[in-house]
């Protein structure tokens, strides 16, 4: 466990230092497309469904206790912004991005391409991990915004058309504070930095044949998802303890 976190921090350090290499602009952009753009449908779809589920539950609770959706609605809206949008977006994005990163790097590793890179005077970490790291950091907050918008919109529509109540009252921002947004943003940044590192570490370490790539993907995805949960909790505790 400690060894793993140590290896991840070292990889993170090397990847950050790799940003000094000037020729990575194009690789960065193509990673923004493949880590970000290609994840948008999954996040939109998943969070829209989740928004509907949340309203269904809120509706059940409202009928039981308060009698009106307008009372619990804003609380749920804050919950979506502060907690669900960052966490579920991160988990969805983590599973897709981590799977792709560890699969790609893992199959490069077992095909000796990393060693071919070393002999071509290129550092595989700079070449492969750095663009993915920065692309993911740049993209995760945007994905979180997309996820939050998708969840809120679908919640609003569900309330309006299925429960025939005022959808706008559900998404009222009366409880949303600056602290909520800062908390959500921090979570997104942390997940964005962690996911590619966890996945890349497993990919780079793959040795052997196709089986090694499969193992790298399995372990990489699990560690990325687990890391997101842990980071989410730690950040939640931090913001809770400073009272934001």
């Amino acid at each position: 466990m400690i060894a793993l976190v140590g290896a991840q921090s070292r990889l993170f350090g090397r990847a950050v230092l790799g940003a000094r290499e000037p020729r990575l602009g194009r690789a960065f952009l193509s990673q923004v497309a493949s880590l970000g753009g290609a994840t948008v449908p999954l996040v939109t779809f998943g969070m829209a469904f989740f928004g509907m589920v949340m309203t269904t539950i809120a509706w059940a609770q409202a009928r039981k206790y308060t009698g009106s959706l307008a009372v619990v609605g804003p609380a749920y809206f804050e919950l979506i912004l502060r907690e669900f949008a960052p966490l579920l977006t991160a988990l969805l994005a983590a599973s897709r991005q981590a799977a792709f990163v560890s699969a790609e790097l893992g199959s490069m590793a077992v095909n000796e391409q990393l060693e071919a890179m070393e002999l071509s005077a290129a550092d595989p970490v700079t070449e492969l991990v750095t663009p993915r790291l920065f692309a993911s950091i740049a993209v995760m907050p945007l994905l979180t915004i997309i996820g939050a918008v998708a969840a809120s919109l679908s919640a609003m529509l569900t309330v309006t058309f299925f429960f025939h109540e005022d959808g706008l009252s559900f998404v009222s921002p009366q409880y949303v504070t600056f602290g909520d947004l800062a908390c959500a943003f921090t979570k997104a940044l942390a997940a964005g930095a962690y996911v590619p590192i966890a996945a890349a570490l497993r990919g780079l370490r793959a040795r052997g044949g196709a089986g090694a790539v499969g193992d790298a993907v399995t372990v990489g995805v699990v560690e990325a998802c687990m890391g997101c949960l842990v980071l989410d909790f730690l950040i939640a505790v931090f913001f809770h303890s400073v009272g934001a």
């Binding site: 897709r96 799977a99 560890s102 699969a103 893992g106 077992v110 790539v213 993907v217």
Partner: peptide, 14 residues
Amino acid sequence: GAQGVGRAAAEAVV
């Protein structure tokens, strides 16, 4: 090959 296995795992997760 190796790429296929990685891709399958990734697709399955998504």
